[in-house]
């Protein structure tokens, strides 16, 4: 286990940001932490980084206690903070060189520039970069010392789709290199796309944990099936089979089901008995977003941003 968390609790005054969190993370792969503002994502990663102290419970990262072994741990931990600023007036290259100097060993600056695709902007001042380029630079700084664990706190928030996709490329590369990446995000499709494991948090608790595929499988949301047939179809037998017909959409009949396999078999029987053939069949499984909304449904959006801010100071 590269990260081990036991009974982790964090309180800001009366606000409980994390309640008795238990979690183990293995080496390798991308772990996504999803949840609304105030769910405790940032509080959690900042305790792992050693930026905040836990109220109670224990955290071990690479066998070290982040609160007391910070400098040693940070040699092996690469961090992109959600709220951060870079030193002003420095060029991209100067900035990377500066951060490289803080570590016992660092990768050559040019290799990082290449990885984050900023070679041609190397001598430009960082504040003249576009939002996407700046975010790539911030991630590049997190990678300068070739860390074993990389923690990215909402790296793609506020980026345009193109910039977001560029950053996804960087994250995929981290995974190919066998690094452990922890990614907090608001974007569910991003978690679905990039993560080997998704942890959903709500009000300081873990409410779901598994591969995106497993989580979708656990959903009680129904799948939707559309069929297009070459004649008039009587959907009554499907009702008997426990499938809910949702009427017609153009040429397609639409059904909702929680058991797509059984439904498709029943559809086949029905079509054969009515002498019809299939022109088109489409199946839409519930997405991670459906699972997410199911679990978070009643949490008001932007609930208690203060907790993630660590305010209450």
């Amino acid at each position: 286990m590269i990260i081990q968390v036991r009974g982790l609790r964090k309180q800001y005054g009366d606000n409980v940001a994390l309640q008795a969190l238990d979690l183990e993370i293995e080496a390798g792969g991308v772990v996504g932490i999803l949840g609304p503002n105030g769910a405790g994502k940032t509080t959690f990663v900042e305790i792992v980084e050693g930026l905040r102290d836990a109220t109670s419970g224990s955290v071990s990262v690479l066998g070290m206690d982040p609160a007391s072994q910070g400098p040693e741990l940070r040699e092996r931990l690469g961090v992109q903070l959600q709220k951060t600023a870079l030193p002003t007036e420095l060029t991209v290259r100067e900035m990377l060189d500066l951060f490289a100097a803080f570590y016992t060993s660092a990768l050559p600056t040019d290799s990082i520039l290449q990885k984050i695709n900023l070679l041609s902007q190397a001598d430009q001042k960082a504040d003249t970069l576009s939002g996407g380029q700046q975010q790539r630079l911030v991630v590049g700084i997190a990678l300068i010392h070739d860390p074993e664990i990389v923690i990215l706190d909402e790296p793609t928030t506020g980026l345009d789709p193109k910039a977001r996709r560029d950053l996804h490329g960087v994250i995929r590369e981290l995974r190919e290199q066998g690094r452990t990446t922890i990614l907090t995000t608001h974007y569910i499709e991003e978690a679905e796309l990039l993560c080997d494991r998704v942890i959903m948090m709500r009000s300081g608790e873990i409410v779901a944990d598994g591969t995106p595929f497993d989580l979708v499988g656990q959903s009680s949301e129904s799948s939707t099936i559309w069929i297009h047939v070459d004649g008039d179809m009587d959907p009554a037998p499907m009702i008997a089979a426990g499938v809910e017909p949702l009427g017609q959409q153009g040429d397609h009949h639409k059904f909702a089901t929680t058991d797509p396999t059984a439904t498709i078999l029943a559809l086949g029987d029905m079509l054969r008995s009515q002498g019809l053939s299939l022109v088109d069949l489409r199946l839409k499984r519930p997405t991670l977003e459906d699972v997410y909304l199911e679990l978070m449904g009643d949490v008001p959006a932007d609930d208690d941003q203060a907790i993630d801010d660590g305010a209450g100071s």
Binding site: E49, L51, P71, K83, T84, A85, F102, Y103
Partner: peptide
Amino acid sequence: SEREAGILRRYRVTPVS
């Protein structure tokens, strides 16, 4: 201003003392 902007915080997650 460096502290308020969060630049010092960024330095803090490196081993710099």
